[in-house]
């Protein structure tokens, strides 16, 4: 949302379907709300395609650029689950599960769509701490020395499978 606007929240309305963004217009010092109708979205629509369309839409783009992609995906999924007749609680539960990271889940073994959702969730934290060219504190070479003081708990216990390697 760059300089002029700062994002406050983003939500969804089921009927008629629309995305909402609340933001502060810094120059005017006012909080505003923008409604973006969701058209032609059905039970079988591809969520990711709609997300991409919104993020590319020249009229909506600048309001949505600070909204994490995963949030837009989740909001549209809520809408879709609603169209399918699922209860809000059930829908929220499923979505939360799909987009959360289990540190013990082997992602080499999941199907492509599951992996895609996990990667989308990871992308949010990647972007959150990201320093890229153009940022005031960006440096190409960043060196830091770390001096570990304790042993990682991951090394304890089940070392049996690790006999040779």
């Amino acid at each position: 949302m760059s300089r002029q606007y700062s994002l406050r929240k983003c939500g969804i309305r089921f009927d008629p379907p629309a995305l909402f963004v609340t933001y502060t217009d810094k120059s005017a010092g006012k909080t505003r709300c923008r409604t973006m109708p969701i058209r032609n979205f059905t039970k079988t629509s591809t969520v990711t395609r709609f997300v991409e369309d919104f993020r590319k839409n020249p009229r909506h783009k600048k309001y949505l650029e600070d909204v994490p992609k995963s949030q837009l995906e989740k909001l549209l999924r809520l809408l879709q689950d609603n169209l399918r007749g699922m209860s809000l609680d059930q829908s929220l539960n499923e979505i939360r599960k799909e987009y959360s990271i289990d540190p013990n889940e082997d992602l080499n073994k999941v199907d492509e769509e599951t992996l895609r959702k996990k990667k989308t969730a990871m992308e949010d934290s990647f972007e959150k701490n990201r320093k890229k060219p153009g940022d005031p504190d960006f440096e190409y070479e960043v060196e830091r020395d770390f001096q570990p003081v304790e042993t990682c708990e991951w090394d304890s216990g089940d070392s049996g499978s690790d006999a040779d390697f």
Partner: peptide, 30 residues
């Protein structure tokens, strides 16, 4: 916080070990 911990795998196989972040760039170039 994790950088306070040592990971035995690298030590055991005598491999050079790096704490890195592709996101903020820490130690990537090195």
């Amino acid at each position: 916080k994790v950088t306070q911990k040592s990971f035995n795998f690298a030590k055991k196989h005598q491999l050079p070990f790096y704490f890195v972040s592709a996101s903020d760039g820490t130690n990537v170039v090195k």
